[in-house]
Amino acid sequence: MDPIETTIPSFDGTKLYFVKNLVDNARAAVVIVHGLCEHAGRYDYLTENLNARGFNVYRFDHRGHARSEGPRTFYSNFHQIIDDVNVMVDQALQESTNIPVFVIGHSMG
C-alpha cells in the first residue's frame, strides 16, 4: 500500500509532518521516533522491512525538523518532544485497536 502523508496538529497546534505505511492484516503497529537533526525519511529502509514482516509503521518529523513546523531544531522545553511523541502514539493507538503498538526511538528519539 502507498504511504499516506499528511500533517497532524500537536498539543499546541504545531503541524507535524506525518506518514503512515500500512499493510493488510497487520500483526502490530510501530511508531518510529527519529533523532536530533534527522527526519522520518531516514527510516524508509526500516519501514520497508517492518511492512514486509506485517507491521504498520507510523513516522513523523519532530517539530523544527524537515517538513514539520517550528523553529529549526529548537525546543523551548524538552517536554515538547515528549508531548509530540504522545500525539503520534495516541494516533497509532486510535487506529490500531486490535493490535499491539510499539515505539522505536533512535538517539534523541
Rank of each mutant, 00 (worst) to 15 (best):
V31M: 08
V31R: 05
I32Q: 03
I32F: 14
I32E: 02
V33I: 07
V33T: 07
G35Q: 00
L36D: 00
L36Y: 15
L36C: 06
L36F: 15
L36G: 02
C37Y: 07
C37A: 12
C37D: 07
E38W: 05
E38R: 15
E38L: 08
E38M: 06
E38T: 08
H39A: 04
H39V: 01
H39Y: 06
A40Y: 15
A40T: 12
A40R: 12
G41Y: 00
G41P: 00
G41A: 02
G41C: 03
R42W: 06
Y43P: 05
Y43W: 12
Y43N: 11
Y43E: 06
D44C: 00
D44W: 01
Y45R: 10
Y45V: 06
Y45E: 12
Y45L: 06
L46E: 05
L46R: 00
T47N: 06
N49A: 02
N49D: 05
L50N: 11
L50E: 11
L50M: 11
L50I: 05
L50T: 04
N51P: 07
N51L: 11
A52L: 08
A52G: 04
R53K: 15
R53E: 08
G54S: 13
G54H: 08
N56D: 15
N56S: 05
N56L: 01
V57F: 03
V57P: 07
Y58D: 05
Y58M: 07
Y58G: 04
Y58I: 09
Y58A: 03
R59F: 13
R59Q: 15
F60Y: 15
F60K: 08
D61G: 04
R63G: 14
R63V: 10
R63C: 11
R63T: 06
R63S: 15
R63N: 10
H65N: 10
H65Y: 11
H65E: 05
H65K: 09
A66T: 11
A66S: 15
R67D: 14
R67H: 13
S68I: 08
S68K: 07
S68M: 02
E69M: 10
G70N: 02
G70A: 01
G70W: 04
P71Q: 12
P71Y: 01
P71L: 11
T73M: 14
Y75W: 13
